[in-house]
Amino acid sequence: MSGNGYLLEVKDLRKWFEVRRGIFSKPLWLKAVDGVSFELRPGEAVSLVGESGSGKTTLGKTILLLHEPTDGKIIFKGEDVTHLKDKKKLMWYRRETGLVQQDPFGAMPSFMTIYRILEEPLIIHKVGDKKEREEIIYKALEEVRLTPVEDFAPKYPHMLSGGQLQRVAIARALILRPSLVVADEPVSMLDASVRVEILNLMREMQESRNITFIYITHDLSTTRYFSEWIFIMYAGHIVERGPTQRVIRNPLHPYTKALLAAIPDPDPENRKRFRDVPPGEPPSLIAPPPGCRFAPRCPVAMDKCKKEEPPEVEVEHNHFVKCWLYV
């Protein structure tokens, strides 16, 4: 590990997708992630929050090298992993990282048993012999509380519920004992009743194994179950980041404020309260507006906002915001 104590450092990371309209036309770039920087220490959990199309999933996948980064740097345990060409190093990185996806049904090969699904990563990374693998798999199923394990192991994915499958997905992501896990909206396709259960399970395992966890969500209300950090993404930028409690209690960026205001509250007192949702839609990522990307929708936008991109400012300790209001 590097001397600064960070597990993961992301420096000015960009992921641009090439969009071609024809053979002879100039390629256009869809800037899904456009200059993102942050650091995470071992065992920290962070919630990456943003609406659809904000680039949060792309960021997560780029960190896992499922997308080739366009620019910037990813440093993991002091090693530059941005463009891993060495197969051995890439396998090491794959082993050190895990992924939990949104759709538990789609995430499982329907023709494999649960046992085989969990065995696959072990086979690929040549972990143990047949007997040791069985032990590891049964233990992993036990940890995600799919008991009795002998009943679940020979089943096929379609025989399990969404919640149970997501437990399998978590078990699969953690079976190689990674130190970094990206969970991409892991509960958004589940029934409300099992969401908290799954989140608690993830939190528990994250804490007990000291895993760095990136929890991608569009649902601010679930972040407090989970993370000590919160990053708010908008149109390919992280617009605000800081400790969860502080960001939720004292949101700085107008977009964060709007997001928090939009959280539905079951209190009947609130039923007539007007929700102040910013008008308009997120900007096009192919031709983003100059200056602050939230400016066209921002209720407090100034002239400057529409011309110059704001810098990231540390307003309080560890609480950063990318807004001209705080410069």
Partner: peptide, 17 residues
């Protein structure tokens, strides 16, 4: 493009596999 193929890539499955 199915998620399970992406998952396989994430845990290091080779193209041939």
């Amino acid at each position: 493009e199915y998620p399970y193929v992406e998952a396989a890539k994430a845990y290091g499955a080779s193209d041939a596999r």
